[in-house]
């Protein structure tokens, strides 16, 4: 099957001459969760807006389920749900009406049972007759999610869904994301919270300066870039690392009370075993040990700095 979304050589130059996208190629697989990371102004929202039809592309093309987003916009747009980055709502509408309106403009017949289910799932049912201006920011975010789900999209874009959102909404949201994924919905989200991408994404893309710098399976990415650290808390102060341990990538902690060993995923597991036995042989004892894996955040920072 072709990818659900195929972005080809996409460029965007805004009216003021600003080049927001400089030739992006990106294939998104059916049913995956893709996290797009990138600093402010990287071009994430621009990319999403072009796929959704809010912004016109300057060059290149975007196919959704094999159809061009410009020429065949009815087919492509009816497959997509969008939760925008900005909290924009019709202040004087009720929750129920605004969500039903969304379903209508997407050309779907009214389905009150479905709307009820979505509102309940997002803990909005009690607020269904409230006007939007009476809701808190987090609740408005829920409404935007409900609007995007109201027409049963096959692809869902979440543009920074967790900005300014509390724990319970985050939990509700990931519940919904999980259910949608089980139903086969493709989910693309942008975020500045890297732990989030690390937690739920299948693949991670990094955008900066209008270019896609990297696109990889999350686990492969962690393997390739993710360094591991083993930290040993020593029982006695150590002045220098003995020559017998020179072959290991070791560094001494500032106070001499700890040793840090850096290794990558690729390095064989027994490097640790041999390190530990070498330590015993050198008469160095430790009372505790911990390992730490570098997060996507470290990877991301390294990447963005490297290419900048």
């Amino acid at each position: 099957m072709p990818p659900i979304i195929s972005v080809q050589q996409l460029t965007k130059t805004y009216g003021n001459g600003f080049e927001a996208l400089k030739g992006v190629d990106l294939d998104i697989e059916r049913g995956e969760i893709l996290a797009l990371l990138g600093p402010n102004g990287a071009g994430k929202t621009t990319l999403i807006s072009i796929v959704c039809g809010i912004v016109n592309p300057t060059g290149g093309k975007v196919l959704v389920d094999g159809h061009d987003v410009v020429k065949d916009f009815r087919r492509t747009r009816s497959l997509i749900g969008l939760v925008p980055q900005e909290l924009t709502t019709d202040q004087f509408e009720t929750v129920w009406n605004t969500v039903s309106f969304s379903r209508g403009v997407y050309g779907k017949k009214p389905n009150p049972a479905l709307i009820e289910k979505i509102l309940r799932e997002l803990s909005l049912w009690k607020k269904k007759d409230n006007m939007l201006r009476e809701l808190s920011g987090g609740m408005k975010r829920r409404v935007l999610i409900a609007k995007a789900l109201s027409h049963e999209p096959e692809v869902l874009f979440l543009d920074e869904p967790t900005a300014g959102v509390d724990v319970s909404l985050r939990r509700d949201m990931w519940e919904v994301v999980k259910r949608l994924r089980e139903e086969g919905v493709t989910i693309i989200l942008t975020t500045h919270y890297i732990e989030e991408a690390e937690e739920i994404a299948d693949r991670v893309g990094v955008i900066n300066g209008g270019k896609l710098l990297l696109l990889q399976e999350k686990t492969a990415l962690m393997k390739q870039f993710g360094r591991k650290q083993l930290k040993l808390d020593l029982t006695e102060k150590l002045e220098t690392i003995p020559p017998s341990l020179a072959s290991f990538a070791l560094s001494l902690g500032e106070d001499g009370m700890s040793l840090v060993h850096e290794y990558s995923h690729e390095e064989s597991q027994d490097s640790i075993a041999s390190l530990l036995s070498a330590l015993t042989a050198a008469g160095i004892h430790f009372r505790d040990l911990s390992t730490r894996q570098s997060s996507l955040e470290d990877i991301f920072v390294a990447l963005v700095e490297e290419k900048a």
Partner: peptide
């Protein structure tokens, strides 16, 4: 009004001519 408040995103991204 939707242009001013930003809610126009929805109509622009909907399958409507």
């Amino acid at each position: 009004f939707p242009k001013f408040t930003g809610t126009i995103y929805e109509i622009l991204s909907a399958p409507v001519a």
